[in-house]
Design a binder for these strands. Structure first.
Lengths: 337, 337
DNA sequence: CTGAAAGCGCTAACAG
DNA sequence: CTGTTAGCGCTTTCAG
C-alpha cells in the first residue's frame, strides 16, 4: 500500500510536506513543490489512508446518516429512499464518505458515531423529544431532518408542513367540500404530522367551518393500510367527501381501495396527498398532492452540515416551501354530499 | 474518550486482555476476567475506536456498497433503493458499518475502498465487463449483484432473469397473444436485460411462433419514458397486443400512457412488468409482473460477502428464483388482433 | 493465561 | 518554507 512516505521519497521531500499538500496548506509548501507532489500522487493513484487520517487528526471525512426508528418498518419509506439517495450523491460529490446506520434508539448509536470520529451526522426520523437528548449525547455537528424541536441548539432542515396542510385544506374547501377528513398515523406528537394537521385545521377554521366538519382518521403510512381504509370508507354512507392524507402512499392506497369498491374519485370522494412522490403520477387519476422537494431538502441538509463542519456559516434555508400539485383527484363534492 | 486502557485500568488487567475480550479470543482470557471486563465495557458504554481498529488490524468492520453508474440517473431506481435499504439493515444487524459510495467509474474508487481497509464490498449496477477489471483492481472480497460475468473469480448474487423472461413470454402466449413486444433499455450487452430478452424469446420460439412475432422497443427505465412510449403505441394501428417491459416503472408508464390515450388495458393491450415493486399494486388495473425478491437478494449478497470475509464457506444461493405475479394487466388479445 | 514493546499511516507541534 | 519528533487507539508479536 502506498503511503505518504512513498510519495515523499519519490518527490524528495518529507512526509509532512506531502501531508500539507494533501490538506491544502498552501502557505507551507512552495507552489512548484506542491505541484510536483500532486503530480506524483495523481500518477500513482494515491489515496490517503482513511483510518490513519481519522485516527491522527481531527477530521475523518465521514458523514453519518442516522436513520431512526426504521427497523420496524415493513418497507422502506419512499421519501427516505429519495432523501438518502440524494444525500449520498452530495456527500460523495463533496469528497466525503457516507456511513449509513439505522437504529431504533438513536441515542445508543451516539457512541458508535463518536468512535468513528465522524465529522457530523444527518438525523432522519427522530421525534422532537429525541433530538435534544441525542444532541447532548454526541459532541458532533448534527443536522436534524423534519424535526420540530424548538431548542436553539438544534440545527434542522425541513419543509413548511403547516403551509402544506393549509394548502391542502384550502384546495379542498375551495372545491366545495365541507365534510373533510385528515388521514394520518397519529398527529398528537409534536412534529411534522402535527404541523400538517394544524395547517389543515387552520384552513378549515379560516373558512368558517365548524370543528365537526373535520374528522381525524388514523392510518399507518403504508399502501395496504390505505387500501383497507379506502374499502372501509366505501361502505360508510356518512363518509367525508374531501380527504387529506399526510403521505402519498396512504392517498394512493385510499384511491385504490375506493376505486376497487366502486367509489368514484374525484366524483364521489376527493383525495389529496403529501410529498409528490413519483408514484403520485403513476396512478389514474393522477394524485393531487402537496409537493415537497426532497432532493432540495437533502441538499440543504448536506450543505448545512458541511457548513458547520467547515466553519463556514453558510446558512441555507432551514425550512423549504411546499406547493400544490394540482392533478386529478380533487373535484367538487357530489351533489348529494 | 474512553479507551481500552481505561477499561483495562478499571478491571485491573492489561489493555491486551481487554482487546482479547473484545475480539472473543476466549482461549486467552479466563472466563471470570472476561466477564468482568465485559461488564465494565457495558456499563461505560464503551465502543472500540473504529479508525484505530482499522489502522492497526486487518479488519475494519466496514462493508462498502458501491453503486455504479448512478450519477446520470434522473431519479433513484426503486429496485436499488429497496436493495440498499435491506443491505443496510443486514449489515447493521451484523454489527458492521455500511459505507455507501456511488461512482460512474467503479474502478476509480477501488483505491478509496482499499484506503479505508474496507472488509469487503457489494457492487451494484456494473456491466459484465467491468466486473473483472474491478475485481482485479481491488484486493478485497467482492460480491456483484445482477452481474453475468462468467469469470470463475467473480462472486455474484442475482436472480433467474432468463426464467423471468420465459415466464412473461409463456404467460402472454398462453393468453393468446401473437404480436409481442419487449420493451427495454437495450438488450445487446450481456447482462440482466439480455437474459430476460433471451428467456422471452425462448418462450416465443418454443411456442412455434416466428421471429417476426416479436418486436424490440427501446425505452429508458423511467416512468416518463414509458408514458411517452405508451402514447406513441396508442396511435399505432399495428401495435403489439402483448408487451413485456423489463422493469415495472416502464410498464407502469406504458399503462398510464395507454390509458390516457384511450387504449384499454388489458382489453386492447396486455402488459407485463418485471420486479414486482410495491408500485405494481398502486395502479389500476394492478400490474401483472415477474416477481423477484429484492430483500432476499440483498440478504444473499450480505450473507455471501460476510461468509467470504469470515472464512465461512456458507454458500448462499447465487441465483434466486422468480415467479409470476398474476394481476390485472394481462388478458386475451382483442378479437381483431 | 497475561503483560510489554512495537508499529499501522497519518497529523500536530515544534524546530530549523 | 521544510524536516523531525511524538502519538492517535488499537492489534500484533514476543516473553513471561
Amino acid at each position: 500500500m502506498t503511503t505518504i512516505r512513498d510519495i515523499a521519497a519519490e518527490a524528495g521531500v518529507s512526509a509532512q510536506t506531502v501531508s500539507n499538500v494533501i490538506n491544502g496548506r498552501t502557505s507551507r509548501v512552495s507552489a512548484p513543490t506542491a505541484e510536483r507532489v500532486r503530480a506524483i500522487m495523481q500518477r500513482r493513484g494515491f489515496v490517503p489512508n482513511g483510518p490513519a487520517t481519522a485516527l491522527s487528526g481531527s477530521r475523518s471525512n465521514i458523514i453519518a446518516l442516522l436513520h431512526a426508528g426504521k427497523t420496524g418498518r415493513r418497507q422502506p419509506s419512499p421519501h427516505d429512499s429519495i432523501f438518502v439517495d440524494e444525500v449520498e450523491r452530495r456527500v460523495t460529490a463533496a469528497g466525503r464518505y457516507l456511513m449509513i446506520r439505522s437504529a431504533d434508539d438513536v441515542v445508543l448509536t451516539a457512541a458508535e458515531l463518536r468512535s468513528w470520529r465522524v465529522d457530523g451526522a444527518i438525523i432522519l426520523g427522530t421525534f422532537t423529544s429525541e433530538a435534544d437528548e441525542l444532541q447532548a449525547a454526541v459532541g458532533l455537528p448534527l443536522v436534524f431532518v423534519d424535526n420540530y424541536s424548538t431548542s436553539p441548539s438544534i440545527r434542522g432542515v425541513g419543509i413548511d408542513d403547516f403551509a402544506g396542510g393549509q394548502l391542502a385544506g384550502r384546495h379542498l374547501i375551495a372545491a366545495g367540500h365541507r365534510r373533510l377528513a385528515l388521514v394520518a398515523p397519529g398527529v398528537d406528537q409534536p412534529g411534522v404530522l402535527h404541523q400538517r394537521y394544524a395547517g389543515f385545521r387552520a384552513a378549515v377554521t379560516a373558512a368558517g367551518l365548524g370543528a365537526d366538519s373535520l374528522t381525524l382518521v388514523d392510518c399507518e403510512p403504508f399502501f395496504d393500510d390505505g387500501v383497507a381504509l379506502g374499502r372501509t370508507l366505501a361502505g360508510d354512507a356518512d363518509r367525508p367527501t374531501g380527504i387529506f392524507a399526510t403521505a402519498d402512499v396512504i392517498a394512493i392506497g385510499l384511491l385504490k381501495g375506493l376505486l376497487e369498491s366502486g367509489v368514484m374519485v374525484p366524483g364521489e370522494v376527493s383525495l389529496i396527498g403529501f410529498d409528490d412522490l413519483p408514484e403520485a403520477r403513476y396512478v389514474t387519476p393522477s394524485l393531487t398532492t402537496v409537493r415537497q422537494d426532497i432532493p432540495a431538502k437533502a441538499d440543504a441538509a448536506v450543505r448545512t452540515l458541511l457548513g458547520v463542519i467547515d466553519g463556514d456559516a453558510a446558512a441555507s434555508p432551514a425550512r423549504l416551501d411546499v406547493e400544490l400539485a394540482v392533478r386529478g383527484t380533487v373535484g367538487p363534492p357530489p351533489a348529494n354530499g
